[in-house]
Write a protein that binds this DNA or RNA. Structure first.
Lengths: 247, 247
DNA sequence: AATTGAATTTGACTTAGATCAAGGCGAATC
DNA sequence: GATTCGCCTTGATCTAAGTCAAATTCAATT
């Protein structure tokens, strides 16, 4: 029944983001790129570290060391509760930063681990030998990145707070799509980097429900799913769903 | 049946936070307080503007002008969707900042309005005449405040993502309590600055449900409610509820 | 290619919470 | 003090989503 959907996983070398589409780029520039001092940059930024799926980048509360930028692959950040169960707070795709909040606070606010093997750049910020002017620029960029992050995080309220799972899922898929497009990846046909369980956890619903809603959406012709491969067939209708506009 | 609970509203003059418990204080210091240059500070910070309930501080997308710090009263920030309905993303109490994200972005990321009349300080940051060193400190403080904000925002995931409304509400109440205590206000007996509707909106449930769960909690002796006045009678049990520990 | 184990789908059943609709209470206004 | 309006509570009913369990598919490994 399902015609096989084949989409390229995010960890494919093809989909590695170029530096100027990476959120870290602004910081890299301050740290050496714009002065043309490549040697200095190299000392600070370790580029393209390969990381295997399942590995942990850092734990919640751990002393801050690096800011990570995703080059390829996919990552999640999450909070662990006293009772052992985890709450995913965000997913991270190529071009996006992980652990940023740790810098100003001195420790990581959440744990982060790898969903789909890939590569990261990481920046050892603490030992930056910078001038006051550079530092000023640096913290300003930092503030910008953090502001975007707050905004993103608040938008997630719409997603979780929404009445129907159908709606949450529509918003979720469109959001993934947008983020992929922003970094130059295909937006209407991609591979979900996370399992149903993780989607369910993030949206605050049961994984069976995610399954059911996905198949329902497929029956309605909105999307095509085959395992983790997904295609948004009628993005317009999805967008309507996301905004609760009646048909 | 209900013995009258009387609690002081947040807008009471008694509960106005002192400067050194205010999140803006770090920024104020950079902007003049630490140099002892009071005149300069006065030019930048307008102190204690009275604001009436229902008024709007700013709209979403509006050009950034001020960072606000709550002195007394209560505020909410929210996103408006295409279909007209709003999603509250945060409440703001004495000592807390509003609109911070706008600075780096150039425009406000959400709308903010007044729940309970009170007063604010506001800071006209854009025209700060500061040295590079001061600016560096300034943006660094900014980054710290924003990092805390991201953290706070992500913690809210636990609140909304949680299975039962009972749990969400427990977390919500404890969170309010903590925030009040941090600013030197009583933590176990306070007045809810927002209506049931707003709580429900924030938690992503129906207002009737908030009502029901509150009365249920009262029946169990966990809390005492009378209108907007509330008393946390067995904080320990509430905390257990919040962490899903079985009794 | 066969085996194993995990992830996903599907089904049957149960339940928490939404919705609709009255009724009660309290604070502001006259 | 009576009146009004908006907020809050309570009840009855309904439905979306949770839970438990079995079946199926997928992917990793030998």
């Amino acid at each position: 029944m399902n015609k096989k959907l084949t989409t390229i996983p995010l960890s494919s070398p093809k989909s590695e983001v170029v530096c100027n589409l990476c959120e870290l780029f602004g910081l890299c520039r301050v740290a050496g790129l714009n002065s043309g001092d490549d040697a200095r940059l190299e000392r600070i930024v370790s580029r393209r570290l390969q990381i295997k799926r399942g590995r942990m980048l850092f734990a919640a509360g751990e002393k801050f060391k690096y800011v990570y930028a995703v080059k390829s692959g996919a990552f999640k950040s999450y909070l662990l509760m006293e009772n052992g169960c985890e709450q995913i707070v965000d997913f991270h795709f190529p071009g996006e930063l992980i652990g940023l909040e740790g810098m100003a606070l001195g420790h990581y606010a959440y744990a982060a681990s790898v969903l789909e093997s890939g590569s990261v750049c990481r920046m050892r910020i603490t030992e930056l030998p910078l001038s006051d002017t550079e530092l000023m620029q640096f913290w300003q960029r930092q503030a910008e990145a953090l502001s975007r992050r707050v905004h993103h995080c608040q938008s997630a309220f719409l997603l979780i707070g929404s009445k129907s799972v159908e709606r949450s899922l529509a918003i979720f898929l469109l959001n993934l799509s947008e983020r992929f497009v922003e970094r130059g990846l295909p937006g209407y046909r991609f591979r979900l980097p996370m399992g149903r369980e993780d989607i369910a956890n993030y949206l605050g619903v049961a994984n069976e429900t995610v399954s059911r809603v996905l198949t329902r959406m497929q029956e309605q012709g909105l999307i095509a799913v085959s395992g983790r491969n997904i295609q948004l067939r009628v993005p317009v209708r999805l967008r309507e769903l996301a905004c609760c506009i009646e048909t």
